[in-house]
Simulated scan of single mutants.
Amino acid sequence: MAPRLTAGLREARVGAEFNRTVFLVDDDEPVRDSLRTLLESYSMAVEDYSSCPEFLENFRTEEGGCLVLDLHLPVMSGLEFMEIHGGSLDDMPVILITGRGDPATKARALEAGVLAFIEKPFEDESLVDLIRTALCRPTRH
């Protein structure tokens, strides 16, 4: 998935205004790089990881922000992560993305506390709008 970068000014204040980071967890390096480029083009601060254990090793709950999490990951899937660790994210909104979703998995993900469950391919603007919504949510930070 290559991001569609258009000419003109992006809303530079999006990331800085909320002073929150978008944490991106996806094992597919080209997808991860593409999403990072897209989000940074909107001046969002991004930290990316290739696995849930790598994210857990580096994440500090006081950082706040939004987690964009792939469903199908090695070691621990995005859904397993949410079912085990979702409650320890201190109300951080989570957007679960997948290339292979089904209604039962979506229901489990929503029950585990994800804000949104979206399937690839998706429109860049749809993801950016979801992240903006997530970053605007009040948190305990």
Rank of each mutant, 00 (worst) to 15 (best):
Y49L: 04
D102Q: 09
C52E: 02
D102K: 08
R100C: 02
L127V: 11
A116D: 12
D48F: 06
E17K: 13
G87P: 05
V68W: 04
V25S: 03
M76T: 11
R140C: 05
K120Q: 10
V46W: 05
A12Q: 07
D28C: 12
F55N: 00
H85Y: 06
S34G: 15
E63P: 07
G78E: 00
T139D: 11
T37A: 14
F23E: 02
R100I: 08
D33R: 15
F23Q: 03
D28M: 05
R137A: 14
E125Y: 01
A45D: 13
F23W: 04
A109T: 03
H141F: 14
R108P: 04
S51A: 09
V75T: 09
F23L: 01
L35K: 04
D70E: 11
I84T: 15
L73K: 03
C52N: 00
L73W: 01
M44V: 09
R100H: 12
V25H: 07
M92S: 00
E83S: 07
G64W: 01
E119P: 03
D27N: 14
A45I: 09
S51W: 06
L35G: 04
M92I: 06
H85N: 10
R140V: 07
P121S: 05
V22T: 08
E40M: 13
L38P: 10
S77P: 12
E123G: 13
R36C: 12
A12P: 10
S88Y: 09
M1Q: 13
A109K: 02
M92Y: 06
A2I: 10
R20T: 12
E125L: 12
I97G: 09
S51Y: 01
A109L: 04
L67R: 02
P138D: 14
I118K: 02
A104N: 12
I131L: 05
V128W: 05
G101R: 07
M44T: 11
S34C: 13
E123Y: 06
L35M: 15
F18Q: 11
F55H: 07
F23K: 01
E62K: 14
N58V: 05
V14G: 07
G64A: 02
L35F: 13
I84A: 12
R4E: 15
R13C: 09
K106T: 14
E54V: 02
T37S: 14
E17L: 15
F18E: 13
S50K: 06
L79C: 02
